[in-house]
Design a protein around this nucleic acid. Structure first.
Length: 581
DNA sequence: CCAATAATGAGAGTAGTT
DNA sequence: AACTACTCTCATTATTGG
């Protein structure tokens, strides 16, 4: 596909104009820069001194994690002493400024890679066959033990190395493994900084007591809560959760100042659940160029709640809704339920649509309880039924019939075409829809792109799922020129492909299964082919963040949710490559 | 201030079905 | 045997109500 014809236009957008001015009326604490945050995290870790490995190696991989090449870090430490973190950082910043060159040797002949980020990817230049191009820390290996020992030499713990290899794959370049470990480390230490780390090893029932004790110990009485929250760099969820404005309440639309590093191209849009374990959003924000999250509840866009945080560098004025806007009440959305809705069920909106729904047995139990009591049921029965209805989002579709919501109905609520997910089994439909964007909400935020890209956009869609981003852009009337959609689930891929056909898309759709396959080299190829990406969008897995998960709510380090670091890695690569244009 | 309440893109194991 | 549906599990947050 061509699609390059008006790339010049896409890239000539003036990123420094207008709305990066004035007021910040959101109740966020202002984030600190990544460097400062890392230092603090480091200090916190050092004080506690609980992990193995020498101070030196930890210092090294800390700075490597911040994006400085290892040899430069070593040099800075030699010249400034190993303990003066401030001086080392200062020196590193100076070197980088002086050299103003790609920082790692293998990048010398190539200027398309970041010179300041954690993602220095040697595979940009190496050929596809994993040739050992070597130079210090760029080894390729096919045996795990060998790779581990290389990483250990670099100052990592064997256990970390092993996890990284399992996670990234055996043939992953060492530098990439190093990136992975650093990213995980930074997250871990950020958590540690927030005094969560120790809790992982304490039985759950004792946590509450210990936390209270630690809290009291650390903070003298009389310090107001806001102050403590500020100290811990927490983001507080706004109430009402309307972000920079929703259609019904547009008066709080404001201008905002974005940190310079956050400016595009490309524009980017990141999404995840609002209610995460403590400290997760501040970590995400720190990685995503210190942009404060915009927390929005989709109950202002449709008849179901959906509390999500969005981090993006889009303009925020002149937003508009996808038309027609869906109704906000259950009875308007599903008129057939009105007839059967008991007077004592006061709900007019649904709770968050999840990945699984209640069983038919539950509906049966509720029916039985209601039939036992002729007329209005007793208070305790009503209470039980209401609990179940709210928990499982049941709707009244017949006499005494509180049924689970159908996939088609979820599609309507989520802003997808009816039967968008048809063709895969019911369970998978619920799962995919439960994980999807609410199209009207995301569309509202993305609407500002329409006037910026009249000729359409090139889209990099990570963790695409059932294509919420694509559907939102299409419904906004923004043509999709080239779309790279990264999604592991086959049913989801099929759904997006089918939608692409059914809506007669003129553009070019490329599917990639695994974010791990999105290497610097492939990104470089796409960018040169398409003339760059205009939008990098994605919501990384929330499994380990979601409140409903009592089993493995491990935070950003979790098995699935750690894929956030791939979002960052890929975004940062695109950013640095695009800045070369 | 504290206790009760409500909400929450889940996961693992098991029973039932094709 | 593979797939699908159901049950049981129980924690961390934010909010509400006194």
């Amino acid at each position: 596909m061509d699609g390059n014809s008006d790339c010049g236009k896409s890239l000539s957008i003036d990123w420094d104009t207008d709305d990066e001015l004035e007021i910040e009326s959101m109740p966020f604490s202002s984030g600190v820069g990544p460097a400062t945050a890392c230092q603090e995290a480091f200090a916190g870790c050092g004080e506690a001194g609980s992990s193995n490995g020498s101070q030196t190696s930890r210092t090294i991989h800390h700075f490597v994690g911040m994006g400085f090449p290892k040899d430069m870090v070593v040099r800075a430490m030699k010249e400034n002493g190993e303990k003066d973190i401030e001086a080392i950082l200062e020196a590193l910043l100076t070197y980088s400024a002086i050299e103003d060159l790609p920082l790692e040797e293998e990048h010398v002949s190539d200027d398309s890679c970041s010179s300041k980020c954690a993602s220095n990817h040697p595979d940009l230049l190496s050929d596809q066959n994993n040739f050992p191009i070597d130079e210090e820390n760029t080894h390729y290996s096919i045996d795990k033990d060998g790779t581990i020992s290389v990483l250990v030499e670099m100052g990592y713990q064997a256990e970390e190395a092993s996890i990284a290899i399992d996670r990234c794959g055996l043939d992953t370049p060492v530098a990439e493994l190093s990136d992975f470990i650093c990213a995980a480390q930074m997250a871990k230490e950020a958590d540690f900084h927030l005094e969560k780390h120790t809790e992982a090893y304490i039985p759950k029932d004792k946590r509450k007591i210990l936390r209270t004790e630690a809290w009291n110990l650390k903070r003298p009485k009389g310090i107001v809560k806001e102050q403590m929250v500020q100290d811990d760099e927490e983001f507080r969820l706004p109430n009402p959760m309307t972000g920079f404005g929703v259609p019904s309440e547009t008066w709080n639309i404001v201008h905002r100042t974005l940190p310079e590093a956050a400016l595009g191209p490309p524009y980017f849009y990141y999404e995840n659940v609002a209610m995460t374990p403590r400290g997760v959003w501040s970590t995400i924000s720190r990685f995503l160029y210190d942009i404060a999250p915009e927390f929005v509840d989709s109950k202002y866009f449709c008849a179901a709640a959906r509390k999500r945080g969005y981090i993006h560098n889009l303009p925020i004025h002149n937003r508009f809704q996808i038309l027609p806007p869906p109704p906000l009440k259950i009875h308007e959305t599903f008129p057939h339920t009105k007839k059967w809705w008991p007077s004592w069920d006061a709900r007019d909106q649904l709770n968050c649509l999840l990945t699984c729904v209640g069983s038919a047995k539950l509906t049966e139990r509720i029916r039985n309880k209601l039939e036992e009591s002729a007329g209005e049921p007793p208070v305790h029965v009503k209470k039980y039924i209401m609990e179940q209805c709210k928990r499982w989002n049941l709707i009244w579709v017949g006499k005494n019939n509180a049924a689970t919501i159908e996939p088609e109905e979820i599609e309507i609520l989520m802003g997808f075409p009816v039967n968008h997910t048809r063709g895969v089994n019911r369970t998978d439909r619920f799962k995919a829809l439960g994980n999807a964007f609410q199209v009207d909400t995301v569309g509202y935020h993305l609407s500002v792109l329409k006037s910026l890209f009249p000729g359409g956009i090139n889209l990099l869609s990570l963790f695409s799922g059932i294509g919420g981003a694509e559907v939102a852009l299409h419904r906004l009337g923004i043509p999709l020129k080239n779309v790279v959609s990264v999604e592991l689930s086959e049913p989801c891929q099929t759904i997006v492909r089918n939608w692409w056909e059914e809506t007669n898309q003129k553009g070019n759709l490329i599917h990639v299964a695994d974010v791990q396959e999105v290497t610097a080299e492939r990104i470089a190829q796409w960018i040169s082919r398409f003339g760059g990406f205009d939008l990098v969008i994605g919501g990384s897995p929330c499994n380990n963040l979601a409140g409903r998960n009592h089993v493995s709510r491990d935070g950003l380090e979790g098995k699935h949710s750690s894929l956030f670091f791939d979002y960052f890695r890929i975004l940062d690569l695109v950013k640095s490559m695009m800045s070369q244009y």
